Simulated assay, not measured.
Amino acid sequence: MNLIRRVMAAMFMSSLLAVAGLAVAGPAQAASCYGATCHDKDPQTYCSSDATTPVSGKWILQNAAYVELRYSHSCAAAWARISHASPWDPRGQLAPTVSVIRNSDGASYSCTVPVGDTGCYTKMVNDNGPTSYARGRYDTGANWYYATTAS
């Protein structure tokens, strides 16, 4: 009987400590960055909640892939996204790519659409003051086609 009481007391105490730990820890805080601290970070992790497309996106060729410049005001950072990429053959074509390029110094990041996928997005550049643009490339096997957004 003594053993049962000790086990029950231990279970009660561990439950109490677990509840107290949750109360102290509180809700998880969202990851954040701003301006230069966002440079080279994943926008989906840090800044996608208020992301906008500040300038019109562009189609490469006729609906081969769609290129967008994405921007977060709360993070003061920009990135590029390519979507709706038509199926491509890795045996005869280079993968569709997109880059974000910062006008002030040429800092850039690129991503390549994986085989079997239709899009990707780049890491972020600090866009707190400078302007950026997105540039996408699609290879038909015979020619390369490009689309560039405004800044």
Rank of each mutant, 00 (worst) to 15 (best):
C38N: 02
Y71M: 02
L22W: 13
S49M: 10
S74G: 11
T112F: 03
L22G: 15
S99H: 00
A107D: 07
E68D: 10
Y34D: 09
L94C: 00
A20I: 14
S83C: 04
P87Q: 01
C33W: 05
P130H: 10
A107Y: 08
P130D: 13
V24S: 09
T118G: 11
T148M: 10
M124C: 10
A150P: 10
A95N: 02
S110Q: 02
V115C: 00
Y66T: 06
N103C: 01
Y71D: 07
E68Y: 05
D42M: 07
L69R: 02
T53V: 15
S151I: 11
G106V: 06
K41S: 15
T97M: 01
L69C: 07
M11C: 13
P90N: 04
M13S: 13
G119H: 09
C47G: 13
D117E: 12
T122W: 04
A51L: 15
G92C: 00
P87W: 02
D50T: 10
D139G: 08
N2I: 06
V19L: 15
Y146G: 10
V100Q: 02
L94N: 00
Y109P: 00
T140I: 08
Q62F: 14
I60S: 08
N126M: 01
S104Q: 01
W59M: 12
W59Y: 13
P87G: 03
N128W: 11
D42N: 14
V7L: 12
H73D: 15
S74C: 08
R137P: 07
Q29E: 14
A77R: 00
V19D: 13
Y71N: 06
Y121G: 12
D40G: 12
A36L: 08
T112P: 01
A20C: 15
V24N: 09
S15G: 14
D89I: 03
P87S: 07
A18F: 14
G57V: 11
